[in-house]
Computed example of a mutant assay.
Amino acid sequence: MRALADDLGVEAMSLYHHLRGKEALLDGLVERLMAEVAEATSDLPAGEEWRDGVRRRCLAAREVMERHPWGPAVLLTRTSVPPSVFAHFEAVLAAMIEAGFSYHLGHRALHALGSMVLGFVQELFAPGAEGDEDASADELAAMAHALPHVTAMVAAELHAADGDVLGWCDSRAEFEFTLDLLLDGLEAQRVAQSP
């Protein structure tokens, strides 16, 4: 709060007249971020095939996240889900239900899509993250020996991921590949559940 007050040229205590504290500020940032996602998805065509609609919604959310690369980290720190996030998931689920998904399959679909609906993917691990710089050459060599394929993949992807905004391997191409793979699989499940 002090850093924000300094940036705004005011006393830190004056911010508390407008905000309850840092958590309220972060909640407000999430609400603003999701308002931008809602605006980006508000003009999506109605009545299109469910897969295209869900894909467009995920990609529109991703464009917002690319403009605000701090967004995924802030979203993941919230201890409760803001109503605006629920509203976004409601629109995705509605497209699926209208296309013939059961609520059971829709529930599984939302789990499978995870944060992709919000335009990003959660990193399982992030090479180069805080603390990694402390790894010694011997520790890195031991890791390469014990995990040769993981080490080779990370080395290849770190090189190929230059300039990624949302994470070391969260490139748009990778995001779209995973999204399409999931949507294709969900379509097969939707067809299989039909009487």
Rank of each mutant, 00 (worst) to 15 (best):
F86V: 03
F125H: 05
R62W: 09
A87L: 09
V37Q: 13
R51D: 00
A60F: 09
D52R: 10
L8Y: 08
F101D: 00
V117E: 03
D164E: 12
E49K: 05
A61E: 02
S102P: 14
H149M: 15
V191S: 00
P69C: 13
G106Q: 12
T77W: 04
D180N: 06
A112I: 13
A155S: 09
D7S: 03
I97N: 09
E133W: 02
H107E: 02
T41Y: 02
A126Y: 02
E36L: 05
V165E: 07
V92E: 00
M116N: 02
L124S: 15
S80Q: 13
W50F: 15
F89K: 01
L113R: 00
A161E: 10
R62L: 01
L147F: 13
E63P: 05
A38Y: 02
S42Q: 12
H88N: 09
H145G: 11
D162N: 08
A35R: 15
A155E: 08
T41L: 03
C169V: 01
G167F: 13
K22E: 05
E176G: 06
G47S: 07
D132G: 04
L8P: 11
L15F: 07
L33S: 11
A155V: 07
R51M: 04
P148Y: 13
V117M: 05
A12P: 15
L76G: 13
E90H: 04
R62F: 08
Y16R: 12
H145N: 04
E39K: 14
E36D: 11
A142G: 10
D138R: 08
G167V: 11
A38N: 00
L186W: 13
A3F: 03
P72K: 04
G9W: 10
V150F: 09
R20Y: 11
L29Y: 14
A129K: 14
E49R: 15
